[in-house]
Design a protein around this nucleic acid. Structure first.
Length: 440
RNA sequence: GCGGCCAUAGCUCAGUUGGUUAGAGCACAAGAUUGUGAUUCUUGGGGUCGCGGGUUCGAAUCCCGUUGGCCGCCCCA
C-alpha cells in the first residue's frame, strides 16, 4: 500500500484541511491590514550562518540544514526574525518609518512531534521597526489581540501575559546584582514555573549560594500580577531608570485599556522568555482554560539588527503559530465547517443540450459566478441530488423542451420554486438573483 | 537525545485458546429510476493485516527488530 509516505512531522492539506488553514490566514491578514501592516515574504532556504549568528552554533541540531550542490551550508528557515532583520537592515535608510510589516509563512524545525508542534508549521510574524517607545508595543500587542478576537475569541478565552526584562534588570540592580548574576536569575525565573526551587540550581552552581532574602524577593516579584502590586513593590525604590520604566508600564497599559483590550492583558513578571536577545517588554498569549502551548509570543529586540551587522534599529515583534491556534479554535467550536462552494448548478438534459449549456456556463463563470455541472450524462434525479450537495442556491435546467422554446428553467433550490427565463438573459437573471433576491 | 502507548479498507473499528478464501458500519461508485432534491433496496471497487525476520504443519494473532503515529520529558527561536 503505502510505498511513499510523507516525511515525519510534515503535514498534508486535503481540501477540507486547507479550507480551515485558509480561514485562519484570511483573518490574520484582515487584522494585520486593518492595523496598517504591509505583507512581505522571503526565501525559505537561507544561509546556515544567518541562524548561527543569532542563536549560536548549538542551534544547528534543531535545524533542517544541509550542504547544497554548490557547497553552501544552508538551512530551511526555522523562524522569520533573522530574515526580516536582514530585509530591514539592507534598506534601512530608504524605508519610511515606522516600518510595520507582517508575513505568513511555513517554517521548519528538526524536532520531535508533540501536541501543537510539528516539524513544519505556519506562523504569522508581525514586527515594528524604528520606534523605540512603548507606542510600538501598544500597536503590536493590540494587533496580537485582534488576531485572536477576529475569530470570536474573547477575554474569557485567552489572555496576554506582559512582562519586562528591563524592569527585572533595574530591580535586581537595586538589589546589588551585576549583569551576569541578573542573567542567571532571569534564567531561573524562566524555568521556575515548571521546576520550582530546582530552577535556581544552575545559578547556585555558577555564583554560589543564593541569599535567602534575595531569593524570597525574586519569587515575590515573579508573583506580581497587577500594576498596583508592581507599584507597591517598586514605588519607593530610589532609581531614576526604575521610576521612568514604571511610567512606561502605566502608559502602555492605559493605551491598551483605551482600545478596549484591558481585560485581555495581565501583568505577569513570571514571563521572561528564554531568548537572550529580548531587550525590553516581552509577552505571551495563552489559552485561559486547558493545557495548550503558548498561542503567541514576542517582545522587543533593539540590538538584534546590529548584531547581524547592520546599523542598530529598535524593533518589537511577535510570532503566532497555526497549530496550537487551530486546536484552540476547534476546542471552542469556533472553526466553521467548510463545504463545497458553488453558486449555480447547471442541470443538463442530454448531449444535445450540452452544447448550449456550455456557452452559458462559460458566460456565467466569466461573470465571476461559481458554476458546476455533471461532467457525464446522468439521470435528472442524480443531477438534482448533486446540485443540492454542491451547496448551490440556484439550478439552471437545460432540457430539450426548454431550449426548443428558447428558455431555461430557473430553480431556486432553497424554496424549490421555479420559472422560465429567456436564454439570452441568463447572466442578468443570475446577477439579479444574487444581488437582490438571493438568500446568501 | 530519552520514555510510555499504539499500528487491520479512505475513516471508525471487529477478528475467539494461533486454524481453511480477513469482516462490519460509514464514505466512494454503479443500478433500481429515460425530466426534478439528502430516503430505501441491490451490486461493485478498494487490504500482501505498517515493513523485515523468527517460532510453528499453520501467524493479523506469539517473539525480536525496524519504520511510522499519538503523548510526555529535553528544547521551544
Amino acid at each position: 500500500m503505502a510505498q511513499f509516505q510523507s516525511l515525519p512531522g510534515f503535514r498534508e492539506f486535503y481540501p477540507d484541511a486547507l479550507a480551515r488553514r485558509n480561514h485562519i490566514f484570511r483573518q490574520w491578514r484582515r487584522a494585520a491590514h486593518a492595523y496598517g501592516f504591509s505583507e512581505y515574504d522571503a526565501p525559505i532556504l537561507e544561509p546556515l550562518d544567518l541562524y548561527k549568528a543569532k542563536s549560536g552554533d548549538e542551534i544547528e541540531t534543531q535545524l533542517f540544514s544541509f550542504t547544497d550542490k554548490g557547497g553552501r551550508e544552508v538551512a530551511l528557515r526555522p523562524e522569520m526574525t533573522p530574515t526580516v532583520c536582514r530585509l530591514v537592515g539592507e534598506k534601512a535608510n530608504a524605508l519610511k518609518r515606522p516600518i510595520k510589516w507582517f508575513s505568513i509563512g511555513e517554517f521548519y524545525r528538526y524536532e520531535r512531534m508533540q501536541k501543537g508542534r510539528g516539524r513544519s508549521f505556519f506562523q504569522l510574524n508581525a514586527d515594528i521597526f524604528g520606534e523605540p517607545g512603548i507606542e510600538a508595543e501598544t500597536e503590536l500587542i493590540a494587533l496580537l489581540i485582534q488576531c485572536l478576537r477576529g475569530f470570536g475569541l474573547g477575554a474569557e478565552d485567552f489572555y496576554v501575559r506582559l512582562s519586562d526584562r528591563n524592569l527585572w534588570f533595574y530591580y535586581l540592580e537595586t538589589l546589588g546584582l551585576d549583569e551576569a548574576r541578573v542573567r542567571g536569575i532571569l534564567s531561573a525565573v524562566d524555568r521556575y514555573e515548571k521546576l520550582g526551587d530546582d530552577a535556581f540550581k544552575d545559578y547556585v552552581t555558577e555564583f554560589g549560594p543564593l541569599d535567602a532574602e534575595l531569593k524570597a524577593k525574586v519569587i515575590a516579584f515573579m508573583g506580581v500580577k497587577t500594576m498596583s502590586a508592581l507599584e507597591a513593590t517598586l514605588g519607593a525604590l530610589v532609581s531614576d531608570k526604575l521610576q521612568a520604566r514604571l511610567g512606561d508600564w502605566r502608559r502602555l497599559l492605559a493605551n491598551l485599556a483605551a482600545m478596549g483590550f484591558g481585560d485581555c492583558v495581565e501583568v505577569d513578571l513570571g514571563v521572561v522568555r528564554g531568548l537572550a536577545y529580548y531587550t525590553g517588554f516581552v509577552f505571551e498569549a495563552f489559552d485561559r482554560k486547558g493545557d495548550l502551548r503558548a498561542l503567541a509570543g514576542g517582545g522587543r529586540y533593539d540590538t538584534l539588527i546590529g548584531k547581524l551587522g547592520y546599523n542598530e534599529m529598535p524593533a518589537v515583534g511577535f510570532g503566532m503559530g497555526d497549530m496550537t491556534f487551530a486546536l484552540l479554535l476547534e476546542q471552542r467550536g469556533l472553526m466553521p465547517a467548510f463545504g463545497p462552494t458553488t453558486d449555480v448548478y447547471v442541470v443538463i438534459g442530454g448531449e444535445a443540450e450540452r452544447t448550449a449549456a456550455f456557452l452559458d456556463i462559460a458566460g456565467l463563470r466569466a461573470a465571476g459566478y461559481r458554476v458546476d455541472y455533471s461532467l457525464k450524462e446522468v439521470a435528472f434525479g442524480k443531477q438534482f441530488k448533486a446540485a443540492a450537495e454542491s451547496g448551490a442556491k440556484l439550478a439552471l435546467i437545460y432540457g430539450g423542451d426548454e431550449l426548443a422554446k428558447g428558455v431555461v428553467k430557473f430553480r431556486d433550490l432553497s424554496d424549490r420554486s421555479e420559472h422560465e427565463i429567456p436564454r439570452a438573459s441568463v447572466v442578468e437573471a443570475v446577477r439579479d438573483y444574487f444581488t437582490t433576491g438571493g438568500t446568501a
